[in-house]
Simulated scan of single mutants.
Amino acid sequence: MNDAPNPISPSEGAATGGVRLMLRLEGLAVLAAATSVYFLAGGNPWLFAIVFFMPDLSFLAYVINARVGAAAYNAVHTYILPLALAGAGWSLEIEPLWQIALIVAAHAGFDRSLGYGLKYASAFSHTHLGAIGRKAE
């Protein structure tokens, strides 16, 4: 496997202007909707508090390299995982599974609303919503 840095600059492949704003607002809407549904369905506040930041443990994969780190981060920060968990939980009638799905969706929406996008393998700070961190413009 080639672990060479991706030559794409942090500004390439990033949403800008109104598109970036809409993506951040979309994240805020997902956060609000998933959190509301979770609590309206009688979700446990302690479960929410414990699980909400668990997707960020995917950062540990960056210890291996940026490509693996980005793949791990993206796997738990897209809406695909919570949709799959919700579908499985709903169809198998496993309530905690779809509740966890709502929490993971809320987390992904939270991150997007703050401007933390999906990661490119070139660097942790290179996201689809633009550069993040100290070197962000």
Rank of each mutant, 00 (worst) to 15 (best):
A49K: 02
H107T: 01
F53M: 13
Y73L: 05
Y73R: 04
G130N: 08
L81G: 06
E93D: 13
R134V: 14
F39C: 07
A106E: 05
Q99P: 03
S36Q: 14
D111A: 05
H107K: 06
D56I: 02
D56M: 05
R20D: 00
A123Y: 11
A72E: 04
S122F: 07
E137C: 12
L97A: 07
H128Q: 10
Y62A: 04
H107F: 02
L31D: 11
K135W: 10
T78H: 01
D111Q: 02
R67T: 09
R134L: 12
L118S: 06
A70E: 00
H77M: 04
S58W: 03
A108R: 02
N2P: 15
I64A: 11
S36T: 12
A88L: 14
F59D: 15
Y62S: 09
S113C: 13
G69P: 01
D3N: 15
L60R: 02
R24C: 03
S58T: 09
L60Q: 08
R20S: 01
G117W: 08
A41S: 14
L85H: 08
A101H: 07
D111V: 03
P45T: 12
G43M: 02
F53I: 15
A34D: 12
A70C: 04
R134Y: 10
F124D: 03
A106Y: 05
V104T: 06
Q99H: 13
A108H: 00
A29S: 13
P7L: 01
A72I: 00
A121N: 03
S36K: 14
W98I: 09
G43I: 01
H107S: 07
R112W: 04
A75L: 06
W90H: 15
K135N: 12
M22N: 05
A15D: 04
I64Q: 07
